[in-house]
Structure formats: C-alpha cells, structure tokens
C-alpha cells in the first residue's frame, strides 16, 4: 500500500504502476491461496477421514458417523474429554484471578521491581515447553521425596496437571489484563474513594468494568491454551490420567484408530469456534509485541 502511494505521487512512476501492479496482484493472490491450502488442507483431510466408513485409511468406504458414535460410547475417551474441560475451565479461572491480582499489584510497583517480577512470570511463555514440563515434573518429584519423610505422597494426576496449566497460563492472563489496566484513569478510582466507597467497591464499580474485556480475553486465551496443551500435561500427568491430547498421543503411537480422527475433529472445530466467536486480534498482537519487547 505504501509503495503504491509513493508511486502515485510522482508522475514518472505512475506509468510503472499501471504496468506492474496486475501481475504482482495475481502472483500475490496465488501465493496467498497456496499458503492457505498448505495450512488447511491437512486439517481438512483429517476431518474427512473422521467420516470414512472404512477402517483402513488407504481406502475410502463412504460416509459414516459411526466413529463419532463409538467415540461417545468409549468410557476412556469420555473421561479424557471430561478431564480436559475441567482442567481448562479451572486453570483458566484461577490463572485469570491470579493474573488480575498480579496486574493490579504490579502496576503499584516501582519500575525496576516490576520488570523483574514480570520477566519471572513470563518465563513459562518464553521457555521451551519441554523444559517447563520437566521443571514442573521435577518439583513435584522433589516435593514428593521431601514429604515422604512424614508419610505423605504426591500423586501425579489431576492436581499436578492443573498446577502446570495454571503456571503456563499465568503470563498470558497478565498480558491481557495489564495493558487495559494501564489505560485506566486513576482519578475516577480516587474520586470513588473520596465519595466514600471502600477500596473493594471502588475497584468493582469503577475499575473492573473498564478492564473487563481484557479479563475476559485473558480467560478465553487461557482456556484455549489449556484445551490445546500437550507437552506440559505429558510431563505432569500420572498413569491413568489423560486429557484429549495425551490420549491421542498414546493411541497414535499404538496405531491410529478412526475414533481418534473423530476426536481430533471435535477438538479442532471447538477451538475454531472459540477463536471465531471471541475475537482473535488484539491479544495475539499483544503477545507478539510482548515477545518482541522482552
């Protein structure tokens, strides 16, 4: 756009513009479509296979919904689905609450202290997932060894996975809430205090409505990330506890069953719906800006 504006300015270049643009435009359309197909064709194939009535992938046996029926009848898959949803909901809720507290308290901190604490919170976002997963696994192992002196044990399962998810969600919720909180005019809050409101009431009635979009998008981001996570769950879960991702991983290593395609399709479609319904733009922008700032 900028280039074309520049050409339009000078008469000499305007000639070049009329000659050059159509071909460029066609090429760039082709390139867009090429990348689009590259990104989505594999997903489409996976979805189509979830309706294939033939058990082997080598053959197309006609359309069927039987894998979806079987999936819903499979107790292990349903348990994994339930775990995934509960973990996603709880971890997003707790991470949002912690993130809200962190944002409010960070804003009151001195600049230097704030940037130190903020970069500590950001570690799980910047670090490799495998390292975060291993770190969490080790702290639970170490804690278990420590507690065993008094006869306590730490069981890897729901609680450890939940803690892991809250930990990697925390930076994202802080990231969504902090910018909104920064924009707020503190004098309205002070006015509320002057008029006799308690701190909590003033926060609830004056500040919270303004930052609510940030809080909600933080929650949705955390929910989506938790729903999608595999690596952290893989290291913090115990035997017998599965989420959809870990279930798919173990099943695929044994050999793919068509039910897994049905399950994958279900997860893809729900994530896509969440992303389309709760606008995707600003928070991701914030995420990458944040990353480039660090």
């Amino acid at each position: 756009m900028q280039e074309e504006k520049a050409f339009a300015k000078t008469g000499a270049c305007a000639v070049r513009k009329t000659e050059g643009i159509p071909l460029r435009k066609i090429l760039s359309r082709i390139y867009l479509i090429f990348i689009f197909i590259l990104l989505y064709a594999p997903i489409a194939v996976l979805i189509v296979f979830s309706f294939n009535s033939s058990r082997t992938r080598a053959k197309w046996g006609g359309w069927t919904l039987q894998w979806y029926v079987r999936m819903f009848q499979d107790a292990a898959i349903m348990a994994a689905l339930r775990n995934t949803l509960i973990i996603a909901l709880l971890s997003a809720l707790i991470a949002t609450l912690l993130g809200l507290m962190a944002s409010v308290s960070l804003l009151n901190m001195k600049h230097k202290k704030r940037s130190v604490v903020l970069s500590l919170i950001d570690i799980p976002m910047l670090n490799a997932e495998i390292v975060t997963g291993i770190c969490l696994m080790l702290i639970f192992i170490a804690l278990g060894q420590f507690l065993s002196r008094w006869g306590y044990t730490i069981e890897f399962g729901f609680a450890t996975v939940l803690i892991g998810h809250i930990t990697f969600n925390l930076p994202y919720t802080v990231l969504s809430i902090m910018p909104k909180l920064r924009q707020i005019n503190t004098s309205t809050y002070e006015a509320a205090l002057d008029l006799g409101a308690s701190r909590w009431l003033a926060f609830r009635k004056v500040i919270l409505p303004d930052i609510l979009p940030g809080v909600l998008s933080g929650f949705m981001l955390a929910f989506t990330l938790s729903l999608d996570d595999f690596v952290i769950t893989h290291f913090t879960k115990g035997p017998g506890f599965d989420t959809i991702s870990t279930k798919v991983y173990t099943e695929v290593r044994k050999g793919i069953k068509p039910e897994m395609y049905a399950l994958s399709t279900l997860l893809f479609v729900s994530i896509l719906l969440i992303l389309l319904i709760f606008g995707r733009g600003p928070k991701k922008k914030a995420a990458s800006e944040h990353l480039s700032r660090v």
Binding site: I43, L46, D228, S264, F268, L275
Partner: peptide, 17 residues
C-alpha cells in the same frame, strides 16, 4: 494466524496421514 492456536499434536497427526 489461527492455526497458531490449534492443537499442534493434531496438525502433525494430519501430516502423518
């Protein structure tokens, strides 16, 4: 940008297929 937020495990599974 959306694929960034879609389960990478499943997207790789698709390529295996």
């Amino acid at each position: 940008i959306i694929p960034m937020w879609m389960n990478s495990l499943l997207r790789i599974l698709a390529w295996q297929t």
